[in-house]
Simulated scan of single mutants.
Amino acid sequence: MFARVTVDLARIVPNPEFGDTEVRFVLLHVIEERARHVGHADLLREAIDGSTGE
């Protein structure tokens, strides 16, 4: 499914928040959000058990 959706990154898709948007923008936004939440989870884990990442 992912490979099929990302064949044409310049394709325009409807986006209720930002208006019509390129697939490239949507993909970048998803990656940024995921990274942000992973960082939050790391902070919570460190606060709970005191261990740090690599």
Rank of each mutant, 00 (worst) to 15 (best):
R36C: 05
G19F: 00
H40S: 09
E17F: 12
F25M: 11
L44H: 09
V38Q: 07
L28E: 15
A41K: 04
N15V: 03
L9Y: 07
H29C: 08
H40L: 11
H37I: 07
H37K: 13
A10I: 07
H40I: 08
V38M: 08
H29S: 13
R34M: 15
G19T: 01
V38T: 05
E32H: 14
I31A: 13
I12R: 02
N15R: 05
E33W: 10
L28H: 10
D20L: 01
A35V: 10
H37E: 11
F18T: 14
R11Y: 04
I12L: 02
A10C: 11
R34N: 15
E33C: 13
E22F: 06
L43S: 11
V38C: 05
R34I: 15
L28A: 15
D42V: 15
V26F: 01
D42T: 09
P14V: 01
D42M: 12
D42G: 07
V13T: 02
L28P: 03
I12D: 02
I31D: 08
R36G: 04
T21D: 04
E32R: 14
G19C: 00
V23R: 00
L9E: 08
V23I: 02
I31E: 11
L43W: 07
F25S: 11
L27P: 00
L44E: 09
R11L: 06
L27H: 04
E33Q: 15
L28Y: 09
L28K: 15
R24W: 10
I12Y: 02
I12F: 03
E33H: 13
D20T: 02
L43E: 12
D42A: 13
R11Q: 09
L27M: 12
E22M: 08
R36I: 04
I31Q: 14
P16Q: 04
E32Y: 08
L28Q: 10
P14M: 00
A41Q: 06
I12W: 02
R11I: 03
D20I: 02
H29A: 14
D20C: 00
V30M: 15
V38E: 06
R11A: 10
V26N: 01
A35D: 14
L44F: 13
R11K: 12
T21M: 07
E22G: 04
G39L: 03
T21Y: 03
L44P: 03
P16S: 06
L43K: 09
N15S: 11
E22W: 04
L28V: 09
R11W: 04
R36H: 06
G39A: 01
E33Y: 12
F25L: 09
A41M: 06
A10L: 12
V30G: 06
D42W: 10
E32A: 14
V23C: 00
R36L: 05
L43Y: 06
P16Y: 03
V13P: 01
V38K: 05
A10R: 13
A10K: 13
P16V: 03
D20G: 02
V13L: 01
P14C: 00
D42N: 09
T21R: 03
V38P: 00
V30Q: 15
V30W: 11
V30R: 12
A41L: 09
H40G: 05
L28T: 12
A35K: 15
H37V: 07
G19A: 00
L44Q: 07
L27N: 00
P14G: 02
A35M: 11
V13Q: 03
A41C: 06
F25H: 09
L28G: 10
P16N: 08
V30T: 10
